[in-house]
Design a binder for these strands. Structure first.
Lengths: 325, 325
DNA sequence: CGGTATAATGATAGCGCTATCATTACGTAA
DNA sequence: TTACGTAATGATAGCGCTATCATTATACCG
């Protein structure tokens, strides 16, 4: 591997001049620059980024922290990562995915998602010890952490309202049984929408289910048995909705003729089932992008804190029936 | 940020002794070690991995190269990355996802996927200039590159045979219209199976389609129109199969009663549609793991080349009808 | 032409760690 | 006790780059 020194010797200049040609060519006289560029090409010089990082205290890597408890094959994660990736590669940053916190801090800053409330504090402590900025998909009141989140309450409310506007009154919800940060919010949006429409939420069953196709299937089966009058079902995730759809069909009923089904996520699953499920789209990709931009701004000295709540958009498809038209 | 020197001063030893306590504690007398450990704790010392990397020429990062042309939200990629991640975090390596080749080489080695034939040479050149080992999901005859690939010919053959064994004779194939490395292989497996069964492949239509739900839909529509006698359709990907299934249903026909459908990939999509599609499972996660292990072995001095071809397994579900029983 | 401002280049000193070799302390056996 | 092997520790010199400040070349002006 060639070093700056080798190039400098060949070009007849000092190492620092070679460094300048690479990093700020406008500081070097064109004639000199050309000499150096020839030498660089001739020796096939490749920069050692570790050495540069040590000297300049800037390594060009962003760590994306996704707790090991979260499955990487989850579309949510991949859309998030893809959004981050797009922005970072534009800014010549790489990113690495961290699944746990160990002693390393081989990065200029952190982007995190999937944290439980109390984990935020732990991660913040970690990043602070390393003097690195932290941005979060989620929300926190900590003034040093930039955060962007999906407005789960608004999203759930929107999609429930869609059912209501289509004349549905007997509505059930299938929610995930884990204590995710969105669990309570989506339930809240659901009940708020009902209340606004003058419906007593107590009369609308909320079933817990494991967040997978089977979970949705079982929950829907229960609804069909125990609440046969339900015409609308709000599933807290599209995965649940797919399972629920299976159960409806298995029971010999039709979507949306017999049961209207709506989901939440809009990350691709919604397109795979028939009829395509009406859902709310979490702009995960875009949030990934925005968080990456926010972090880069921080690294460039930005002082203003970002705290945003993004309202998901309705995606109307074929799984909702207009009642009593 | 504390440095080794600060700790050394506090503990009354030299920096190198502190370094030893961190890296090879067995070389340090217990009494000294304890002193140092106290100092480390007291000062809340955090190692600077960049400095360590510069001095030791080992940074603890693996670069996963996924060309920018490949969508990161693709389940293939997600499973691959997840497999790599599992192994690497066990070995205290991080990984970063690279979407393009630039001048950086901030890693100890490379894992790549999604390369076209001629891109392999380019990437090899790149990694060689940086004296870093390269392992590949795919196959190559280059003796310096370890590679593991899915046996697409065998997989396609297996699943076509399944149709044949179930009595199907009029079989079509929907293939992707891009020149992926698997495109020709899956077509080859298809025709081989037909030939072995004494069927002239020329009589079995092969339709090209964009590798998405719509592509599968359009291709299947064409098959239904132009080859109404087809009882079995082999889709080169599960995504195509989902689209094809939609077209079958849209035409008022049933799966598998009217058309038997099989796919290829088995990465989750197969579970989302109803009836669940019979497919071959590419062990992408496992290959990710094996490649990561192979690379780590190389980094630890392994000399023996790995070149493997993994046969995908049949996953029999509900989309194939046994004919003329 | 001399003086001053500015452009261009260079010398030096690290960044914070580890590899290497040298040294010292210690234990054991003759 | 002395000699010697081993255990424990240390001094030093980088790893390959950039930040900083110093110096030298060049341009411009009256």
């Amino acid at each position: 591997m060639m070093r700056l020194e080798d190039v400098a010797k060949l070009a007849g200049v000092s190492t620092i001049t070679v460094s300048r040609v690479i990093n700020s060519p406008e500081l070097v006289k064109p004639a000199t620059r050309e000499k150096v560029e020839h030498a660089l090409a001739e020796l096939n010089y490749v920069q050692n980024p570790v050495a540069r990082a040590l000297a300049s205290n800037r390594i060009g890597i962003i760590a994306v922290y996704i707790p090991a408890s979260i499955d990487l094959t989850n579309p949510f994660v991949m859309h998030f990562v893809a959004g981050i990736s797009e922005v970072l590669s534009r800014h010549v940053y790489s990113f690495l995915i961290r699944r746990e916190l160990n002693t390393e801090h081989l990065c200029d800053g952190y982007i995190a998602t999937g944290l439980l409330k109390d984990e935020v504090g732990v991660l913040y402590q970690y990043t602070k010890e390393r003097s690195r900025p932290l941005v979060l998909f989620g929300h926190t009141d900590h003034p040093d952490i930039d955060c962007i989140d999906v407005d789960n309450v608004a999203g759930a409310r929107k999609i429930t309202q869609l059912l209501l506007e289509n004349g549905h009154r007997a509505i059930a919800m299938i929610n995930v049984d884990e204590d995710k940060d969105y669990t309570a919010d989506r339930a809240l949006g659901f009940t708020r929408a009902l209340e606004t429409a003058g419906i007593d939420p107590a009369g609308c069953p909320q079933i817990s289910a494991q967040n997978n196709v089977d979970g949705g299937y079982l929950a829907m089966k229960r609804i069909l048995m125990e609440h046969p009058g339900c015409t609308g079902v709000f599933c807290a995730t599209d995965t649940l909705a797919i399972g629920a759809a299976n159960a409806v069909v298995k029971a010999g009923k039709k979507i949306p003729a017999d049961v209207s089904l709506v989901g939440f996520d809009g990350l691709g699953h919604d397109l795979l089932v028939r009829p395509n499920v009406t859902t709310v789209h979490q702009p995960v990709y875009e949030i990934g992008m925005r968080l990456a931009e926010t972090l880069i701004a921080r690294l460039n000295g930005e002082k203003k804190r970002v705290k945003a709540l993004v309202e998901p958009d309705l995606i109307e498809r074929e799984s909702v029936l207009r009642l009593g038209a």
